[in-house]
Design a protein around this nucleic acid. Structure first.
Lengths: 349, 349
DNA sequence: CTGAAAGCGCTAACAC
DNA sequence: GTGTTAGCGCTTTCAG
């Protein structure tokens, strides 16, 4: 079948030199229409495709961008967040002619062993790194610019380009929503504060409460690890402390929280209001979860776009961008209940 | 920093020729120990890494394997199944020195546009394709062996290598489990029969029921599309027809089914038994789901191993392998309830 | 055991 | 407009 096809052999078949074939392939101007057509026909007939290795050897570009998912978030990989993110990254890679390589490190050992390969110039054109953790050792090694990198999420290092979502603003939105509905004993199930997303959502929520002259009571906060079961466990602990509303820092954890409540026959939103974060579980809960939606796919796509700009030199690092979030009102906060929510009941010193 | 490092420059630094450096790098015997040490030291100091493009230009190998996820299953990408599969594939790729490229096609158009690139020799060493659908156009174009391919799942084409799980056997196990517990009105929420997995699970379940002299009543079967909400909807329809046990062909759909039941205050397993398939939601439901566990990660890893054998020529296509599944008894079938389940009640013409 | 030389398939000056 | 010619960095004979 298709084999041994080279510029040279195509040229021979079309009766031209290899340079001309190269010009046709790269859509360069200086080729007469008839020659161009003839060459294209031969290419079509033979099914010739240029050898990428040879091409990248001379051009210095590989056409490959890498997506690195560090080992510590590995266990979270099953959160639909990553599926969406990958979809967004893939969607933006294909049109730009890039191939996406996935680096899913199993553990620290593998990470440090394979890491050199990932940042070595000539292997990848650029890198997207998901960095949900603070003090990422990978980031430290990148700053000195071996290869263009864009981080998804806020890195806690300077000089690194990134795309983040407005975690603080979104969490504040959640706080305001709960306040405006009259809830009094407002709690939170947080994400790990060792991740910038977790830290930012906590900060934002506290700030949002402050805008309504409220504070987040110490005993009304539990943290999870982004998993469904951690949300379930956290909510079981909170129930005894009787919050009337809880902000859960991820939808997956919120599903766990709802499960815990249903198990105890606590009604949502009548007995307790729940608001999530992510916007990833639109129809997976009964009642439908009120949440803060972040544009996950777009975040991934935007990261690739910025990376392409970095690679082409159109932009110089570091650059950053914050994606907007929005409140999506569902049924778990009682916003749509006919009568206004409790206002000013529930007192506690 | 690190730049322009080539075999030549390393050789100069170490006072040897580029051939010798190449031999050291490729661990070839004929190099004297002292020279080898000297060269290695220079490599360490400079941080030199071979240019992969040049290497693959001469070797004909790229060290890259592709994972293709066709557009029709794209919407299902968020099922944790794919996350696990990717983990397995990635886990097996790294040690074998391969890089994993992900081809997540958004739609048919993109699929056929990018497809040539994917099967063109010289771009990828091999391909893993998830083929949950029948009549896959990609598979048709592959059979004539342009590039080594291993399919995950049973392809409905001949001559294609694949790794599948024992869907039929597993579904039969589920049927036997329900029969042995004495259930009478046994229903099923199936996966799309346009996927080989869906078809095989249906076949196996019917066969399993037959072993207990039962048939799957027409009106006790509804099909979903692997999504949580489709499981929810299917169960809502089934409820009125009063099955006392339901086999749900995927855990994700089973979670939806459980949600529908909880919403109607139907108790599991007291009022109805539920058994899933996949083993992906170990602690995500209350009560804990009884299910048929398939080794998803291992399936992915095995696919890569077979692919490597195909690439190296150690094995010749087509080859195939069926991974075993197992029954995991949870709390949704009442297997652990103190008293034996109802035996022989519920009559209907 | 080591070096010299050829060549993988392509792009990009540089001629004509 | 088109062909000729150098390499890109590497592996691999082939000499020595």
């Amino acid at each position: 079948m298709t084999q041994n096809l080279t510029l040279e052999s195509i040229g021979r078949l079309a009766g031209v030199s290899r340079s001309t074939v190269s010009r046709v392939i790269n859509d360069q101007a200086s080729v007469s229409p008839d020659v161009r057509d003839r060459v294209k026909e031969v290419i079509r007939l033979t099914g010739y495709a240029p050898n990428l290795a040879a091409r990248s050897l001379v051009s210095g570009r590989t056409g490959v961008i890498g997506l690195v998912i560090p080992s510590r978030v590995h266990s979270l990989f099953e959160d639909p967040y990553f599926a969406r993110l990958i979809q967004g990254i893939s969607a933006a890679s294909n049109p730009s002619g890039n191939t996406l390589s996935l680096f899913l490190f199993q553990n620290e050992e593998e990470e440090s062993r394979l890491y050199p390969r990932v940042v070595t110039p000539g292997f990848l054109d650029g890198l997207v790194i998901t960095a949900t953790r603070m003090g990422d050792p990978l980031l430290a090694r990148i700053s000195n610019g071996e290869i263009p990198v864009v981080v998804v999420g806020r890195p806690d290092a300077d000089g690194v380009s990134y795309v983040d979502v407005d975690n603080r603003g979104g969490a504040a939105l959640a706080a305001n929503h709960l306040c405006s509905l009259g809830y009094q004993r407002i709690g939170m199930i947080g994400a790990p504060t060792g991740t910038t997303a977790g830290a930012d959502r906590l900060t934002g929520f506290v700030e949002g409460l402050a805008e309504c002259d409220r504070v987040l009571q110490r005993n009304l906060r539990e943290d999870g690890d982004f998993s469904e079961s951690s949300g379930y466990e956290a909510m079981k602990k909170l129930i005894a402390r009787e919050p009337d509303a809880v902000f859960v820092a991820s939808d997956t954890m919120a599903l766990g929280a709802l499960r815990a409540l249903k198990e105890q026959n606590i009604r949502v939103p009548e007995d307790i209001a729940i608001i999530g974060f992510d916007g990833l579980a639109p129809d997976r809960s009964s009642p439908i979860l009120t949440t803060i939606r972040q544009p996950v796919m777009q975040t991934g796509s935007r990261a690739v776009e910025l990376l392409n700009d970095l690679i082409s030199g159109a932009l110089a690092a570091p650059i950053s961008e914050i994606m907007p979030v929005e409140l999506v009102v569902g049924d778990t906060c009682g916003a749509n209940l006919p009568e206004p929510r409790r206002k000013g009941s529930a007192n506690e010193p």
